[in-house]
Amino acid sequence: MMMQEEMRVVSQKSIARNIFEIVLKGDITQEMKTPGQFVHIRIGNNSEFMLRRPISICSVDQTAHTLTCLYRAEGKGTTALSTLKTNDTVNILAPLGHGFPVDAAKNTALLIGGGIGVPPLYELSKQLNARGIKTIHVLGFQSKEDMFYLEQFSQLGETHVATVDGSFGTQGFVTDVIQALPKNYDTFYTCGPIVMIKAIESTLPETPGYVSLEERMGCGIGACYACVCKADNEEGYVKICTDGPVFEKGALNL
C-alpha cells in the first residue's frame, strides 16, 4: 500500500565517488516488503524542485523502522538531498512499483548490478538468503573509486567485481565475469542501464531471469507517461514506474 510520510534522517555519508548512503526512520517502512521497489522523495518545500526524485530501496530494517537508500548526487535535486543532516526530515512517497519475485529462485540465484543499479540487489540478496537461497553477486563499476557495498554483499555470498578501467577485479563488464563463472545458478536478477541488461539477456539466453530498469521518471505513479518503454503486450508499451521497474526477461523490447 502506497503511503506518504515525513521521515527523519538518521544518518548520511559519502561512500564512493558522488555516491551517498542515507538512512531514514519512519513507520512507512512497515509497508516495504518487496525488494526492487522504490521511493519517491520530495526535496525541500519550495518550487525549485517540483518533481520528486525516484530512488531505489537498498535495505529495510522493519524492527528499527529504518530505510537505507544509496544514490548518486548528479543533479541539483540529488545534490541538495546529499546536504541533509541527522534529524532533518524528508517527505517520502512509498513503496512504489513492482519488485523482484524472491520465490522465483530455487537453489542458487545470480544477482548482477551495474553502478547505481547495485543498491536494490542488496535487499533482494538479504531476502533470498533468508529463504535459504545461495546468492552469487556480480557488480560492475566504472572504476575502483565508484565501488560501494562490496563488504556487505560479500557477507551474503560469493561476490565478483568488474571495473571498466581495470582498477579493481576483472577489467571489462559484468558479462565478462559471467562468462567465466560456472553455470550453477537457476535464476538471475539484474538492475542497471539498458545496454547492460541487453548484454546480460544475450549472455544468459537459457536462464530464467528478471530485470529492473533505471529510467528517469516524472510523477512516479503512472500519470505522466515519462518513463514509457516498448513491450510485447496488447498496449505495446509499459510504464516503468507502475508496471515495473522489475520485468520478466524478454517482456520488453529493449
Rank of each mutant, 00 (worst) to 15 (best):
E5W: 06
R8D: 10
S14L: 12
I15M: 12
A16Y: 00
A16F: 03
A16T: 00
R17K: 08
N18T: 07
I22Y: 06
V23P: 02
K25P: 00
G26A: 06
T29C: 13
E31C: 08
Q37E: 05
Q37M: 13
H40G: 06
H40V: 14
I41P: 06
I41H: 03
I41K: 05
I41S: 05
M50A: 13
R52P: 12
I57Y: 00
D61I: 02
A64D: 02
L67V: 04
Y71V: 12
R72A: 14
A73Q: 04
G75D: 15
T78E: 04
T78P: 11
T78K: 10
L81M: 10
S82C: 08
T86I: 06
N87H: 14
V90A: 04
I92F: 05
P95T: 03
A105C: 11
A105I: 05
K106V: 13
L110V: 08
L111T: 02
G115K: 13
I116H: 07
P119Y: 01
P119E: 00
P120A: 10
L124M: 04
S125E: 07
Q127M: 13
L128M: 07
N129E: 01
A130D: 15
G132Y: 01
G132C: 08
I136H: 00
V138W: 08
Q142F: 13
S143E: 10
S143H: 12
K144I: 09
K144P: 07
E145Q: 11
F153D: 02
F153C: 02
Q155N: 12
A162W: 00
T163R: 11
G166Y: 02
G166F: 03
G166L: 09
G169I: 15
T170G: 12
Q171D: 12
F173G: 07
D176V: 03
V177R: 07
I178M: 14
Q179A: 15
L181D: 11
L181N: 08
P182Q: 05
Y185I: 03
Y185V: 00
D186P: 15
D186C: 09
T187A: 05
T187M: 13
F188T: 00
Y189L: 02
Y189C: 02
G192E: 04
P193S: 11
M196D: 01
I197D: 01
I197M: 02
K198I: 04
K198T: 13
E201H: 12
P205H: 03
P208Q: 08
G209A: 01
G209E: 00
L213G: 03
E214S: 14
E214Y: 03
E214N: 06
E215L: 14
E215I: 14
E215W: 03
I221T: 02
K230H: 07
N233A: 15
N233L: 10
E235C: 11
Y237P: 00
K239R: 15
P245Q: 10
V246T: 11
E248M: 12
L252T: 00
L254Y: 13
L254W: 15
